[in-house]
Design a protein around this nucleic acid. Sequence first.
DNA 1: TCAGGCATGTAAGGAGTTACATGATTTA
DNA 2: TAAATCATGTAACTCCTTACATGCCTGA
Lengths: 170, 170
Amino acid sequence: MNTQHVILGILHNQPSSGYEIKQYFEQYFSFFFDASFGTIYPTLAKMEKSGLLTKESVKQEGKPDKNVYSLTPEGAAQFHAYLMSPLEAEVFRSDFLMRLYFGELADEDTVTGWISSQLKRKEMLYAELQRQMEEFGERISPAQRLCLQVGLVQYEATIQLLKEQLVRPE
Amino acid sequence: MNTQHVILGILHNQPSSGYEIKQYFEQYFSFFFDASFGTIYPTLAKMEKSGLLTKESVKQEGKPDKNVYSLTPEGAAQFHAYLMSPLEAEVFRSDFLMRLYFGELADEDTVTGWISSQLKRKEMLYAELQRQMEEFGERISPAQRLCLQVGLVQYEATIQLLKEQLVRPE
DNA sequence: TCAGGCATGTAAGGAGTTACATGATTTA
DNA sequence: TAAATCATGTAACTCCTTACATGCCTGA
């Protein structure tokens, strides 16, 4: 799974510009994927060149023009091929856990600082997912709901554990 | 946090060869970090060149020679500088969640297949963490124990949710 | 008039993977 | 003698990020 696959998926739902694709990432699945403009724009250009997308310039009122991309039949086929390909392993890399692992080498206050800032982050992400579940929970597909739930239960479990740890460290 | 920092941490505990460092990754924190030989060996060479490590060739009985690396004072200083630097955000990229998100575009059996293979993976990782907790739980530091616990509670929560989903999909 | 949002792009570089290449020793 | 484990390394490539560059429009 790479940026190209995600772009295919988004454009399968509706034609969009690079800017809109980035907003989509941030709104709907920032918790398990992200990509910068420095990836998105070159990827779109490459995909158009290889025939997966078509570009159309669209004029807007009170805003700059935008390039709206749509899937070609080849683009749609490529996306379905991705969905049929073997599931890839998740990538998880945690600076927080690495520091905990080597925590003996730092003083206690430093370790507590890591735990409380990690807790704060998780709480913010959790609140954002809850907001999304309240806002979209009724309208989205069962699979999309499960997607949100996976995030929610993971954050819940982590938040609870980290809170306990701060109350009675040991 | 990158491979260099992790190598510094491991060598802080004990001098090791590249091969041993890789084994260490796999045994103790494969669930939140990994790196291939193609990263480890060039990184070790670079670190030696820049004065963070010293290399010593060690002969072994019934095995090829190995290059054992040790931290220099500059290496130790660099590691402590890393521990004092701001905590970085976790990186999480999930092919599984991405597919769920676009799940309407695949048929129901395919989605069920993703869920059950994801469940199987998580169960294996969970079993491995449990084994580690039983084997090392008494001997490791509180911070290292917390590290394992974070993995355990996240996997537990996810496994439970995915199981429910397979029993009564909706 | 200036900050902020909208919009697109490029260039340089960092970090990592996979595949290849080599070769010793041990065990079945 | 073949497979598995131990051990080190390189080369090509992929993918991505950051920083830079540009410019329009809106609202305070």
